[in-house]
Design a protein around this nucleic acid. Structure first.
Lengths: 229, 229
DNA sequence: CAAATAGTTAATACAAAGTTAACAAATTGT
DNA sequence: ACAATTTGTTAACTTTGTATTAACTATTTG
């Protein structure tokens, strides 16, 4: 995370398993995670912690998520706090919408950790301070690609790449494992007007492999190239 | 320069002026733009590029937009692709709706650049959070098919498939249990112009069974093949 | 049991990617 | 402004892997 203060998330659910699952995944993502087991706990914990985002289960003993949300929405300190609901049935969403309770999103159960995490990332990024918009450094394993400095380090050693080589590497490395077709590569790295031979890409790939090792870029015949992690 | 997260739009129209007009305006908006001049080109370009959204003119030589759309809608890789039609007369909309072809929106000619851009922005934004969650990964039992990486895992073990094998598997697996006739398979995996022997499909099926086990694909004699779960 | 349909095998054709060197086009230093 | 150097592109050729086919066998089904 580029900001100094970790973003705080409060998770509220009465099932310990779910609580733990979500906590684990969000911590791994670098968030500061707090938990509560019902609506009452949620409100008092939220007042102490002032989280950036609250994940609320709907069905809970003592006080349900909707009620907790409604209470917090009346408090000025939560004006900018995101509220996300967990719903077991998709119909429950209409309840939330109907209660018009101030939900920012809802996530369907059963929970898929990756989907949950990227959803929460999206919500918090949407609101993130302007300074962290561009993180121009890619770090993949032993490789560091610094787009600002146009520099590549491999195991700490500087590797000098020409512009086209660098951009090709950066494109492929921006999504390791994803296969990029020649068409997509051309569109990304060359100006529209320029038309280049198919062989041109091969040559640049070859130079990359020469400088970084053969196993950095893999060929998928008939499809394209991909960065290998 | 462009980050790989740029959304891709394919524009299909036979009039170069319109193509250029739309291209110019969408590029200005930060989209990655591809073009095609008829339905045939559209399908083959779309297969290579995998766009997020396709703008299709209805009236075109060789293959019209509706036909192109219908073909692409049968292909699993376009399940999450938006299709937007350009219509000269408002009545044409009824045709699209009538054909029930899977259109997400339509835009009336003559084209007003600002309206077009904001319409497309709206469609793609609407889907933005969901898109992050959806990756092109099929998981069926012990089998994982990753279309982005062109990789297949079986019980965690990587299985390397050639392009045609992969696409055949992906097609069948996109709807487990559904029988795909030879005709449909041909339409999906081979270019229109190419004509291949009936045995060719068998050979690819055989290779799949060799690599993944005999029980992965079942033959329905006289009809076609299906993926077995 | 005989058509029709599908499976198998290996040889061949083909297209895609790798390679190299030479040339062109930018950059850079003086 | 010029030469030197680096970077980008191409052509021509080689290599590789994949796709396709033919010829034959096996299986199903009416």
């Amino acid at each position: 995370m580029s900001t100094s203060t970790k973003q705080k998330i409060l998770i509220v659910d009465d099932e310990p398993d779910i609580l733990e699952l979500i906590e684990y995944n969000l911590k791994k993502e670098g968030y500061q995670v707090y938990t509560a087991r019902n609506g009452q706990e949620a409100v008092s914990e939220a007042k102490k912690v002032l989280p950036d985002l609250i994940v609320l289960d709907i069905m809970m003993p003592k006080m349900d998520g909707i009620e907790a949300c409604r209470i917090m929405r009346t408090m000025p300190e939560f004006k900018n706090t995101f509220m996300v609901f967990l719903t077991a049935r998709s119909e429950e969403y209409s309840e939330i919408a109907g209660f018009n309770v101030g939900a920012d999103d809802y996530i369907a159960k059963p929970i898929k950790p990756r989907a949950l995490v990227s959803r929460i990332n999206a919500i918090l990024r949407r609101n993130a301070p302007a300074e962290e918009v561009t993180d121009n450094k890619l770090e993949i394993g032993t490789l560091v690609i610094d787009r600002e400095a146009y520099l590549v380090f491999q195991k700490g050693d500087k590797v000098v790449l020409a512009k086209k080589e660098f951009e090709l590497l950066y494109l492929l490395a921006s999504k390791p494992g994803k296969v990029y077709t020649r068409e997509v590569i051309l569109k990304n790295i060359w100006e529209d007007s320029v038309v280049v031979t198919n062989r041109t890409i091969d040559v640049h790939i070859r130079k990359l492999r020469e400088k970084l090792g053969d196993d950095i870029v893999a060929t998928v015949k008939g499809v394209g190239y991909k960065f290998e992690a």
